[in-house]
Design a protein around this nucleic acid. Sequence first.
DNA 1: AGTGAAACGACCGTAGA
DNA 2: TCTACGGTCGTTTCACT
Lengths: 167, 167
Amino acid sequence: MKNEPTTSRLNQTTKSADDDSIDDVNKKIIALLQENGRRSYVSIGKEIGLSEAAVRLRVQKMLDDGVMQIVAVTNPMEMGFRRQAMVGITVDGDIEYVAQKLKDIRQIDYIIITAGRFDILAEVFAEDDESMLELVNRQIRKIDGIDRTELFTYMRLESQRYDWGVR
Amino acid sequence: MKNEPTTSRLNQTTKSADDDSIDDVNKKIIALLQENGRRSYVSIGKEIGLSEAAVRLRVQKMLDDGVMQIVAVTNPMEMGFRRQAMVGITVDGDIEYVAQKLKDIRQIDYIIITAGRFDILAEVFAEDDESMLELVNRQIRKIDGIDRTELFTYMRLESQRYDWGVR
DNA sequence: AGTGAAACGACCGTAGA
DNA sequence: TCTACGGTCGTTTCACT
């Protein structure tokens, strides 16, 4: 059911096979893989009282269903990006066109179309203040249809989690 | 050099052992682990022309140095959270106190202290509009020292990447 | 959905360059 | 930092429940 958001109201009658794929056992598996994505199925199985094969099949199903992914996540600071910011963007023209253009910028890792004072929020990172200025002033503001941008420079990343809905 | 940001200006003379740990080989390794965090060291080695042990040692070093982590990342939509939003928060009192309080709220996965119109940006998720309202109105706004909050409801998550600085 | 067992492949530690 | 290699452990497949 990867791409069937519109059927959600019909769930009582069209309950698909994976509606309950996130039971407590799977939550435990995710929690362990959240600490170490390469932890072996054997050791996960021992901890939660399941055979290795059962763990492996559950993990595979969750990956196939798009419930989770197991990925390398890099640390921007260690990669030499010392400045991060959120850019609030107000669009004058076609919002989706602007969002599409933003996708081409290497230093943007997160783009959201929102309902609110800003039409788009984009998270950007840069090596230093100079390259941040270049990025916002030359690259982002030059995009057709952008009305205004407002910059929220990060002073401290307080908290960041990837286990949405699990803990 | 995990916690030595203040020494960065001295890099020319105090160049530490892992300053160049993110060479092109490591970038290739990260890129492959970005597609599949559980890919075997053997198969990574074959692709980039390195022995299994060399890949394993490099990955271990990057994990130890905090350059990257390999984790399970869950999909909020598939976990039953259909509403996401960014909350811009203006603080009247102690910003760090408010940030600390926000950390205790299960439905907040991302907290940033910023320089800009808002003192704090927090990404929140909720099952539906009703629980989003409860979250913002009852839980967040009740925190001492919060002056105003502004909600940016997500209409579409356009783009999301975890490979900061690699591609 | 889950188990068990056998064959295969990956991982780990370490010696040596 | 790399390769080579042997011992150990994890993964895969399949037959069965």
